Amino acid sequence: MQETLYEKIYNRLIYDIRTSKLKPGDRVPSEKELADEYKVSRITTKKAMEMLAQSGYIERIRGKGSYVTNVDAGRDHMPQSERPKDTIGDIEARSKVIGLLLPDLSDSFGLRLFRAIEQQCAKMNCQLLIKLTGNKQDVEETAIRDWIKFGVDGLIVLPACGAHYNGELVRLVLDGFPIVLLNQSFKGIAACTIGTDHKHAAYDLTDYLFDKGYLDIAFITTSIENNSTYEAQFQGYTNAIVQRGQVVHPAYVVEDQLILGDFIDQHPNVKAFVVSEYQLGINLQQELQRRRNDWAECEVVCFNSPQEQGVAPIFTSIQQNEEQLGVEAVHLLNAQWNHETYELHNHVNYKLIYK
C-alpha cells in the first residue's frame, strides 16, 4: 500500500526522532527544506509538520522553526530488518497495534481527534498506524486488508461514504474483530460506535435559526443514503421544524451540490441554511454572495467550523468534542480486547458555538 507524500514525510521524521538521529532540542528541517528535498508543495510538508506537532513529537516556535520535544527514542518505528530479534518475553509483552482510518485531517475536524488517539495510545502502550482514505472506499478496503495481514489488533474507522457499506468492514464486524466506528453506524449490524449525537445537534442548530426569526430553513448536505451521520442530522432538522408547528418542505432539502445555485435562485424566500459540513457551508456562502443582493441577511449554520483563539468563527456551528471522541474510541477497543461489557452506541458531548 503506497503512502501519501505527507505520510511518507511524517513517518520518515518519526523514524529519525525515534532512532535518535534527531534528538530532543534538535531543529527539524523547515517546511521549505522538506518541500525542496521531496519535491512536493509546501501544503504537503505543512500537513506533515502539523501532524508531528499534534502528536507531540515537535514544538513549532514562530520565527525560529520546529524543534524535537523530549520524546523517548525507541525501536517501534524502525524497519523490521533493523530491529533486534525479539525474545519470548518481548513477544509476550508486545504492545497492541491500532489502525486508524480517517477520510482526511483538517482544522475543522480530524487533527484534534488524531492527536487525542495518538496520546491515548501512548498512555496505553499501543502502537498507532494511520491512513487517510480521501473518503474513497477502495483505498479504505485496501488499507484494512493490508493491516489485517500485518496483524493489527483493532481498528478505529471513520468510514468513507459510498452507495454501499464497506464490505471489508462489515465482514470484520460480523467476525467479531475489535472495531470502533466514529460518527457512523451500520443499519442492522451490531457494531461498536462512538460519535456526536448529530440528531440533537442538528435540532439545536435549526432551533437557533427559528429563535432568530427565520421560518423558511433549508437543509444542505451531500447524499443522505447510507450515511448515518447525515441521516441523523436530517432527522434533527425535521424534528425541530415539526416542533415549531411548521411544514417540512422536501424542496428545501438539497443533496446534489450541482443544483445548489439553481436552488438559491429559485427560492429567494429561503434565507437560513443548516449545512452538514463546514466546507459545504463555505461553498454555500460563496454562492449566496454571487447570486443574492440580500446575502448579508442570510445565515448559514453548520458542523465543525474551525475555532481559532481570538478570532470570531465564520459560522455558528456545532463543535464536536474530538478529544473525548478519540480517548473513548481507544477505551472501547481496550474493552473489546479484555472482553469487558461496553455499550454498542456511545455519544460524546458537543458545544453550540456562536459567531
Results as ranks from 00 to 15, higher is better:
Ser81Phe: 13
Cys298Thr: 14
Lys149Val: 12
Phe186Asp: 04
Lys8Cys: 07
Cys126Gly: 05
Arg18Cys: 03
Glu308Leu: 13
His331Phe: 02
Tyr354Val: 07
Gly167Val: 00
Ser317Trp: 07
Leu174Tyr: 05
Phe303Gly: 11
Leu181Met: 13
Glu59Met: 13
Asn283Phe: 13
Lys96Ser: 11
His345Thr: 10
Lys21Cys: 03
Phe186His: 11
Tyr350Arg: 04
Gly188Tyr: 08
His249Ala: 04
Asn304Arg: 09
Glu92Gly: 00
Arg171Cys: 02
Phe186Pro: 00
Glu118Ser: 15
Ile98Phe: 10
Lys8Leu: 14
Val270Leu: 03
Ile353Trp: 02
Lys85Gln: 02
Glu141Ile: 10
Pro306Leu: 11
Arg115Lys: 12
Lys85Arg: 11
His347Ile: 03
Val180Gly: 03
His331Val: 02
Val97Lys: 08
Glu82Ser: 15
Leu13Asn: 08
Gln80Val: 04
Ile148His: 09
Val300Trp: 11
Val152Gln: 02
Phe303Ser: 09
Lys32Phe: 01
Asn125Tyr: 09
Tyr342Gly: 00
Cys126Gln: 06
Thr142Asn: 13
Ala232Glu: 15
Met49Leu: 13
Asn283Leu: 14
Asp138Arg: 14
Arg42Asp: 05
Leu205Asp: 05
Cys302Glu: 07
Glu141Val: 05
Pro250Asp: 12
Pro178Val: 10
Arg12Ser: 13
Asp256Cys: 03
Glu287Leu: 15
Leu5His: 09
Pro268Ala: 09
Tyr252Val: 04
Asp104Tyr: 11
Glu7Tyr: 05
His198Ile: 00
His339Pro: 00
Ala163Ile: 05
Ala48Asp: 08
Ser41Leu: 06
Gly154Arg: 12
Asp138Pro: 00
His347Pro: 00
Ala232Pro: 00
Glu299Ile: 08
Gln243Met: 04
Gly110Leu: 03
Ser20Tyr: 14
Cys121Ser: 08
Asp294Ile: 09
Asn135Ala: 05
Lys149Arg: 15
Val97Cys: 08
Thr142Ala: 12
Lys21Asp: 06
Ser276Tyr: 07
Ala335Phe: 12
Leu332Ser: 07
His164Gln: 15
Arg94Asp: 01
Leu158Ala: 14
Val253Asn: 08
Ile179Gln: 02
Pro79Gln: 05
Glu140Val: 13
Gln286Gly: 10
Gly56Thr: 04
Asp204His: 10
Ala296Ile: 13
Leu260Asn: 04
Tyr57Ile: 10
Glu7Pro: 02
Val311Asp: 01
Leu132Met: 12
Ala73Arg: 05
Glu225Ala: 13
Cys161Lys: 12
Val139Ser: 14
Ser81Lys: 09
His77Leu: 01
Asp204Arg: 14
Asp90Glu: 02
Ser108Met: 05
Tyr230Ile: 03
Ile241Ala: 03
Pro306Thr: 13
Phe303Pro: 07
Pro84Ile: 01
Ile117Ala: 05
Glu322Arg: 14
Lys271Met: 15
Asn293His: 10
Leu169Asn: 02
Ser95Gln: 06
Leu22Gln: 10
Asp138Leu: 14
Cys192Leu: 02
Val247Ile: 15
Glu287His: 08
Glu141Trp: 11
Gln336Tyr: 01
Glu299Trp: 10
Pro24Met: 12
Gln286Arg: 15
Trp337Pro: 02
Pro178Glu: 06
Leu332Asp: 04
Thr45Gly: 06
Arg112Gln: 14
Ala73Ile: 03
Pro313Asn: 11
Leu5Lys: 15
Lys131Gln: 09
Ser41Arg: 14
Ala143Leu: 08
Tyr38Ile: 01
